[in-house]
């Protein structure tokens, strides 16, 4: 049996774009400088699909987003690329007030099959606007799905699922995972939205982490191996959230640490903690710990390594709940 080929995460995303655009001519991409490619995830696509389907726009997020939003109503399946996910805030009104709520408000008559994507993440010293993770801002609003891959395999599968989904899906990817290599099957496949995965089995503590923080979680689990057995769950999708997989793990471990590269308050970590208390209070042998960004704007400069979640902070939280 031949080895599964390895790809960097960013190329796994590109393969999903390419295969889905070959499969369905309604799929197209719109963004700023995607033909040239600020990130390599769109490299070479314009040569294959032309400027009708790899659409560069002026620096104007309302118009850029509107290209996708309006075309989706007319039966196209757009992917709109904000380059940096934080730039979605320039089109937050049409995304959060209209797109997400559109189907419901208009009597569930219309569907808006579109993917909203962008890169983000602490660790590159890009400043708060480029770095901040926006998954929780988007996930608060019903009607839009939100996901973020941790591995190249998930990146291709989640993007394929997002493109094929008939709902708007925000696909956020972390710059700290961009060049991570991992096995990626060549044929198209789907990682279903709304399904978490146990990525490492363990018996002492459930550690929920995603994106770049999934890597930090693995570092901690490796370090503690032999001392504390860590089970790592990757939620993969923030909305809808697969809480059942986490509760099932807690039946075994009784201890929960949630890592979320987001502000401490009103984050996915907060949401998971609340749902676990609601539905799994009796499973808990220790208080839930959240490892997040304190409630301060993410500074540029040299402060990211200790302000953002990191292996030391995760290890301290794991040890704390396992005392």
């Amino acid at each position: 049996m031949s080895e599964v080929r390895e790809l960097p995460l960013v190329e796994a995303i590109r393969e999903a774009y390419r295969q889905e655009m070959e499969r369905d001519e309604r799929v197209f991409m719109v963004g700023q400088d995607i033909a040239g490619g600020i990130f390599p995830h769109t490299k070479g696509l314009v040569e294959q699909f032309g400027t009708d389907r790899i659409v560069d726009t002026p620096l104007a997020e309302i118009g850029m987003y509107g290209t996708a939003f309006g075309a989706a109503m007319e039966g196209f399946r757009p992917i709109v690329d904000f380059m940096f996910a934080g730039f979605f805030l320039n089109a937050a009104s049409p995304i959060l007030a209209q797109t997400a709520q559109f189907r419901f408000i208009h009597g569930s008559q219309m569907s808006l099959p579109m993917v909203i994507t962008g890169a983000c993440g602490a660790g590159m010293r890009l400043g708060n606007e480029h770095a901040m993770l926006v998954h929780n801002m988007i996930a608060q609003v019903p009607g839009i799905k939100v996901c973020m891959p941790s591995t190249p395999y998930d990146a291709k599968g989640l993007m394929t699922a997002a493109i094929r989904d008939d709902n708007p899906v925000a696909f956020i990817w972390h710059l700290g995972t961009m060049m991570d290599r991992g096995p990626v099957p060549e044929e198209p496949y789907v990682v279903p939205l709304g399904v978490a995965e146990v990525k490492r089995e363990g018996g002492d503590v459930t550690l929920v982490a995603n994106g770049f923080q999934y890597k930090n979680a693995q570092i901690v689990a490796d370090k503690l191996a032999g001392e504390i057995s860590v089970e790592i769950i990757d939620p993969r999708t923030f909305s809808p959230l697969d809480i059942d997989t986490i509760l099932k793990s807690l039946e075994k471990t009784g201890r929960l640490v949630v890592v979320d590269e987001s502000w401490e308050s009103r984050s996915t970590a907060s949401e998971i903690a609340a749902q676990v208390v609601d539905r799994g209070f009796d499973l808990l042998d220790a208080p839930i710990r959240r490892v997040t960004i304190p409630n301060i704007p993410l500074p540029g400069g040299h402060m990211e390594p200790y302000v953002a979640p990191n292996p030391d902070a995760i290890e301290a939280a794991v040890r704390d709940v396992c005392r």
Binding site: V55, I62, G63, Y65, G66, T67, A68, F69, G70, A71, A72, M73, E74, G75, F76, P78, A91, S93, P94, Q98
Partner: peptide, 10 residues
């Protein structure tokens, strides 16, 4: 003014 761009594009 947002979706009109995509309507026109489509």
């Amino acid at each position: 003014f947002c979706p009109v761009v995509g309507w026109g594009w489509a």
